[in-house]
Amino acid sequence: MIKDIIRNRRAVFPAQYNEDTISKEEISTILETANWAPNHRRTEPWRFKVFHGISQAALGKFMAETYKSTTDKFSERSYQKMIENPTKAGCVIAICMQRDPKESVPEWEEIAATAIAVQNMWLTASEMKIGSYWSSPGVKEHLGDFINLEDGERCLGFFYMGKYDGELPEGTRKSPIEEKTEWI
């Protein structure tokens, strides 16, 4: 039931991933569900750049070196995580948003539609027992220095995916929905 998939979805980080590979077919299945996200005026603003295989190491090196050259608060730990995490993952997908050139809808709606596309991916990956999480490091703003981005396209973050062993912890919320809802 979709309600159970939603409730059981968790952020699963590269440190939790095992060595099992994610096939191109599995990645394609996950991406296909992104394409069914609702969006205003059918702008379909989501764009994805898939790093799978040897390109993951290049992404890690780019992110780490970009971090090193752009931060005022360098941390060796953060630098190492940026190098290592992409190669610990079975796949890393850059989450990009292509702004409608006509600006027929507000930009926030295109960002929201892209986020919904990622939620579709996350739920599908979860159902397939593939762990994932959305990371938004500051270096995302520099992705266009590494790969081609179209005019009006920007990176909103990175979607890490990997297979994992064992069970995930039960989810919690700080407060029930009733405390966040006002009936009028």
Rank of each mutant, 00 (worst) to 15 (best):
I111N: 07
E109S: 06
G90W: 05
Y133A: 14
G60A: 07
R154Q: 15
A125T: 05
A94V: 06
G166K: 14
F62N: 01
K129M: 10
A94C: 08
E170W: 10
A64S: 14
Q56M: 13
E141S: 15
A37S: 07
H52E: 12
E178G: 00
F74C: 05
D165F: 13
V50M: 06
K163Q: 11
F159C: 04
D151I: 06
F146G: 07
P176N: 07
I6G: 05
S55Y: 04
E167F: 15
M97R: 07
A125L: 10
E76W: 09
Y79Q: 13
V12D: 02
N85F: 11
S28I: 14
D4S: 08
S55R: 04
Y164G: 10
K24I: 08
S135Y: 11
W46S: 02
R7Y: 09
K102L: 15
E170P: 00
K102G: 03
F159W: 13
G144H: 01
P38D: 13
D100W: 05
D4E: 08
P169L: 03
D100F: 12
N85R: 11
P176V: 00
S78M: 07
Y133C: 14
T33K: 11
T29S: 07
P86K: 02
H52T: 02
A34W: 05
I5E: 12
M161K: 00
A64Q: 11
N148F: 15
V50K: 11
E170Y: 10
E107M: 14
R42S: 12
E76D: 08
A115F: 14
I95P: 00
D4N: 13
G144K: 03
L149N: 06
V50T: 04
W134R: 07
K163D: 03
E84I: 05
K129F: 13
V12Q: 06
G138L: 05
Y79T: 01
K24D: 15
A112C: 05
H142W: 11
I177R: 03
S126T: 07
A64P: 02
K68G: 01
K180N: 01
D145Q: 15
G90C: 00
Y164H: 05
G53R: 03
C96R: 03
M128T: 03
G157W: 06
E19S: 03
E150Q: 02
E109H: 14
P14T: 04
E65S: 09
I93C: 11
L156Y: 04
A113M: 06
T181Y: 09
I27C: 07
E32W: 06
Y164R: 15
T29Q: 09
D20Q: 14
N35T: 10
A117V: 07
E107A: 15
I184M: 06
A112H: 01
E141L: 14
S28L: 08
F74K: 05
D20H: 14
M1V: 11
I54T: 15
S78H: 11
N85K: 08
E19D: 10
T33G: 06
G144D: 10
M128Y: 05
S136D: 07
H142S: 11
A15G: 07
I2W: 15
M121G: 01
S23D: 07
D20V: 08
I130C: 02
E150T: 00
F158Y: 10
S75E: 09
R99Y: 12
E76G: 05
E32K: 06
I95Q: 06
W108C: 11
K3Y: 09
W122G: 02
Q119L: 13
E167M: 10
K24M: 03
A117P: 00
L168E: 04
E178M: 03
A112D: 14
E44C: 11
K102P: 00
